[in-house]
């Protein structure tokens, strides 16, 4: 009698992400456009970088990166942390995001963001992130708090634009 080999444990979503960090934000055209790279993923955590670039500057005098580019960057890394917290594949959409600027980033300094999804329920994920313009924890430039809606199916994702489907919530 031949015994079936023990089934291989299915890798968790964050493990797949960790193996393909380069591809995670490559799938997002705007992340690619501003040079966002995911560098590290662990369960419910994501780290990424964005290089300082002249065309992304928000003030030519100080050379600080534009707040808008920073928001896109941190949103992307928060989304990755949310994805890394999922136990089964699902879509998600940013519900809200708040960013506090502690100080402007410095000219020529590349940015780094660490995001952690500290709570995920069936429908909502809560993420906190910190952005830095250097390698030290003293180089923090911004603090971020974001909430994501978990979308189980494409049908639910399309429902979001139908006001009757969710009683006016989020529409």
């Amino acid at each position: 009698m031949i015994e079936n080999p023990a089934p291989k444990p299915r890798p968790e979503i964050w493990q797949i992400m960790a193996q393909h960090t380069g591809q995670v934000s490559d799938a997002t055209p705007q992340a690619r456009a501003i040079g966002v790279i995911i560098t590290e993923v662990t369960k419910a955590n994501a780290t990424g970088t964005m290089e300082w670039r002249e065309d992304l500057v928000g003030d030519t005098q100080s050379g600080t990166m534009a707040s808008g580019a920073v928001i896109t960057f941190v949103d992307q890394i928060c989304g990755a942390a949310c994805m890394a917290a999922l136990t089964e594949p699902a879509g998600f959409a940013t519900l809200d995001l708040r960013i506090d600027y502690l100080r402007p980033s410095r000219r020529g300094h590349n940015l780094r963001t660490k995001a952690h999804c500290y709570r995920i329920s069936r429908h909502v994920a809560f993420v906190r992130a910190m952005a830095f313009d250097g390698d030290s924890d003293d180089d923090q430039i911004a603090a971020v708090q974001a909430t994501f809606m978990i979308i189980k199916s494409r049908k639910d994702m399309l429902k979001r634009s139908d006001p009757k489907a969710n009683m006016g919530e989020n529409t």
Partner: peptide
């Protein structure tokens, strides 16, 4: 931001 839908990146709308 999401090529599957497709949808604009939230960061772009914020910016």
């Amino acid at each position: 931001g999401n090529p599957m839908l497709p949808a604009l990146h939230g960061g772009v709308i914020a910016a």
